[in-house]
C-alpha cells in the first residue's frame, strides 16, 4: 500500500463523496447540541433569508476530516485543520471532498482541501497539516 511518505507535492488525495440527508442533519444536531433552527426548520430558515434549511458547516468540515483520516490511516495525525465555508450546503446536495499536497517536509504534509457540489460550486476551501508519526 502507498505510504504517506510516497506522496509528492501537487499530488491529489483520495476523494470522498457525500450526500447529506435531513436525517443526518438531525442526528448531527442531536450529537452536538446545535439545534439552531436554520438547520432543522425550512420555514425558519426562509425567514432568515436562507431559502430553506442548510447543513451544519461543521458537518461538511467533518466529511473533509474523514477524507483526511481515511487517507492518513495510522501513519499520522491532523495537527492543523482550517476551513472557510464558501457556499451553503443543503440536504441531498452531491458533495465531493478533494485535496492535494501543497508542501512537505520530513514529518509534515501540508494539504489543500476543497469541497464542491454537483453544480461545480466550491462550498468549502481549507488547509490541513498532517504530522507523520516518527
Amino acid at each position: 500500500m502507498k505510504s504517506l511518505l510516497d506522496y509528492q507535492v501537487s499530488e491529489p488525495l483520495p476523494i470522498r463523496e457525500w450526500v447529506p440527508s435531513d436525517l443526518q442533519v438531525r442526528q448531527y444536531a442531536e450529537a452536538t447540541g446545535d439545534f439552531n433552527p436554520i438547520h432543522l426548520d425550512d420555514d425558519y430558515a426562509r425567514q432568515a433569508g436562507l431559502e430553506g434549511a442548510i447543513v451544519h458547516g461543521m458537518l461538511t468540515m467533518a466529511q473533509i476530516g474523514t477524507m483526511l483520516t481515511d487517507w492518513i490511516g495510522e501513519e499520522g495525525t491532523i495537527s492543523k485543520f482550517n476551513v472557510r465555508f464558501e457556499q451553503i450546503v443543503r440536504p441531498n446536495d452531491k458533495i465531493t471532498c478533494s485535496g492535494s499536497i501543497k508542501a512537505r517536509s520530513k514529518n509534515t504534509l501540508v494539504c489543500i482541501l476543497e469541497a464542491s457540489n454537483d453544480k461545480k460550486e466550491r462550498v468549502l476551501s481549507g488547509l490541513a497539516y498532517v504530522t507523520l508519526k516518527s
Partner: peptide
C-alpha cells in the same frame, strides 16, 4: 455518537472536528 452522526465507523479515534461541538 459524534462519529455515527458524521457517518463514520467509530474506531477509538477522536474525529478532528469533535472539539467544534464546543462552539455551541
Amino acid at each position: 455518537r459524534f462519529a455515527e452522526a458524521i457517518g463514520i465507523r467509530f474506531n477509538d479515534r477522536v474525529p478532528a472536528t469533535f472539539v467544534g461541538t464546543l462552539v455551541q
